[in-house]
Design a protein around this nucleic acid. Structure first.
Length: 158
DNA sequence: GCCAACGTTGGC
DNA sequence: GCCAACGTTGGC
């Protein structure tokens, strides 16, 4: 099976690449995803070893902040059951999970974010979800071609 | 902080 | 099952 690549969005005020780097062993649960399309990818498609661009949204500038790797495949997102969690979902019961999480491990942090504006201008990246207007999906597939292009771009940001 | 774009909800 | 209303995302 060919290796898969992804882009995960996070608001750094909630969870940033620095938070991931500081976590024990650089490992953290990627939870709180409450969108069915993203859920399906977390539950069914994303596998251990897949590589992920860590994207910071709702900051200036938004863009790719680093890389992480999937170390645990889809499992029920417990935050949906926790009343105190901002991700609590009253329609979820423990015997029938609705939402799923994965675990990721820190790989690298870029000294400088690769801004969305640069991604938009880079040939070969115009079809990426993240560069398209109005896209809100927080878990996005990235093609191996796009991954390669961004890895080359990255040399200017480290 | 604004607001366009999108996903979800719920009345019918 | 349609679709208007609503809530959320996220760039700007």
């Amino acid at each position: 099976m060919a290796k898969r690549y992804w882009l995960f969005k996070s608001e750094p005020d909630t969870f940033s690449i620095d938070d991931l780097q500081r976590a024990p062993k650089g490992v953290a649960v990627w939870d709180g995803v409450r969108n069915y399309q993203a859920r399906n990818m977390l539950r069914d498609i994303i596998k251990v070893g897949d590589e992920v661009f860590f994207y910071h949204s709702r900051v200036q500038p938004p863009g790719i902040a680093g890389i992480c790797r999937v170390v645990r495949e889809g499992f029920p997102d417990k935050s949906a059951l926790e009343l105190s969690s901002q991700y609590y979902d009253p329609k979820v019961h423990s015997d029938k999970p609705v939402w799923y999480a994965v675990e990721v491990q820190f790989v690298l942090k870029l000294p400088k974010i690769i801004p969305l504006e640069v991604l938009k201008k880079t040939p070969g990246l115009q079809k990426m979800m993240v560069t398209r207007k109005g896209n809100r999906l927080s878990i996005q597939p990235v093609t191996s071609e796009e991954w390669k292009i961004i890895m080359v771009l990255m040399k200017n940001y480290r």
